[in-house]
Computed example of a mutant assay.
Amino acid sequence: MVILFILGVGLVLSAIALVGMALRPAEESNSINRSLAVLRAMTDAPKELTKDLDKPFADRVLAPLRARSLKVGRRISGADSAERIRAKLDLAGNPAGWSVDQVTASKVLGAGVGLLIGLAVGLVIADSLTFRLAFTILGTIVGFFGPNLYLYQLAYDRSNKLQRDLPDAIDLMTISVESGLGFDAAVQQVATNTDGPLADEFGRMLREMQLGMGRSEALRSLGDRTNVDDIRSFVSAMVQADSFGIPVAQVLRVQSGEMRTKRRQRAEEKAQQVPVKITVPLIFCILPALFVAVMGPAVINILDNFG
């Protein structure tokens, strides 16, 4: 009886094992079929359901990050920050792809990147906690004010180019007015036949006048968009000439002479600064090499004779 009981239990266990082995492939096949069904459904699904998965990395990751940075930047910035950034963009010539929101978001992103870079540099270079903290703070500050520094450099270069191009532009306007054209047509000649930021500013002034803005107001707007004293002086003279009815050709002739005199004076000023600026490299770079070349052989001979 014991042997029969053991055989019965063994047969039952064998039957259970065979049933489990028989059902396992069916479960695996069912899971495979479900996976294929999901893939088929995703492939055959309409574009409205799969458009979120088809978006590029910039739209899925960078755009939300930029939006979060913009919110943080608006919270930590002052109430007049938008006006100040817009003024800086006007001075820089409104570079392509840059706006007030772009600058605000870039400042927050730059602060985050600068914090990580400063922390990494501090961990690699410095051993003390104070220096690591100093590198981290410095990187954060540089990253936060990086866009402002970039706009400042663009505005500085643009102002120098405006100042260099203004005398030639006034000469062209003077010739055009004296040949019989009006002031607006003379400005159009400068905007059409020249290149650079000054031509762009004159073109913008003409578009504003075509949209209904008065000549004096358009000229004042031109002066407000630049920080060049010569342009503001020219704008002031032309506004007064338009208000009092002074002949435009005469005003342009006087302005042309003044601008050329100022340009010559600036050139002379820079020429007089050359001896002062060359003193430092002369003392620390040129004179030591000259002393080595001239006095070196004599010092060697003296040492040999004493030796």
Rank of each mutant, 00 (worst) to 15 (best):
W98R: 06
W98C: 00
W98H: 08
S99Y: 11
S99Q: 09
S99H: 10
S99C: 08
S99R: 08
V100T: 10
V100Q: 09
D101S: 09
D101Q: 07
D101R: 09
D101P: 05
Q102D: 14
Q102Y: 13
Q102K: 11
V103H: 07
V103Y: 10
T104D: 02
T104K: 09
T104M: 15
A105P: 11
A105D: 06
S106R: 10
S106P: 05
S106F: 08
S106N: 13
S106E: 12
K107T: 06
K107C: 14
K107N: 09
V108T: 07
V108N: 07
V108H: 00
L109F: 00
L109I: 14
L109D: 00
G110R: 04
G110I: 03
A111G: 12
A111H: 05
A111Y: 00
G112S: 13
V113M: 09
V113C: 09
V113P: 05
V113H: 05
V113W: 02
G114K: 06
G114S: 00
G114D: 00
L115V: 14
L115W: 05
L116Y: 06
L116N: 09
L116T: 12
L116K: 06
L116D: 10
L116P: 03
L116R: 04
I117E: 01
I117D: 03
G118A: 06
G118I: 01
G118R: 02
G118H: 04
G118Q: 05
L119M: 13
L119C: 09
L119I: 11
A120K: 03
A120I: 15
A120V: 14
A120M: 11
A120W: 06
V121T: 12
V121W: 00
G122K: 01
G122R: 03
L123H: 01
L123C: 07
L123E: 03
V124N: 08
V124F: 15
V124H: 00
I125T: 13
I125K: 06
I125R: 02
I125W: 13
A126E: 11
A126T: 02
A126I: 06
A126K: 04
D127G: 15
D127F: 12
D127V: 08
S128V: 04
S128K: 13
S128C: 09
S128F: 12
L129I: 11
L129E: 08
L129N: 03
T130C: 08
T130V: 14
F131R: 10
F131W: 13
F131H: 12
F131G: 06
R132F: 09
R132M: 15
R132L: 13
L133N: 07
L133G: 14
F135E: 00
T136F: 03
T136W: 02
T136P: 02
T136H: 03
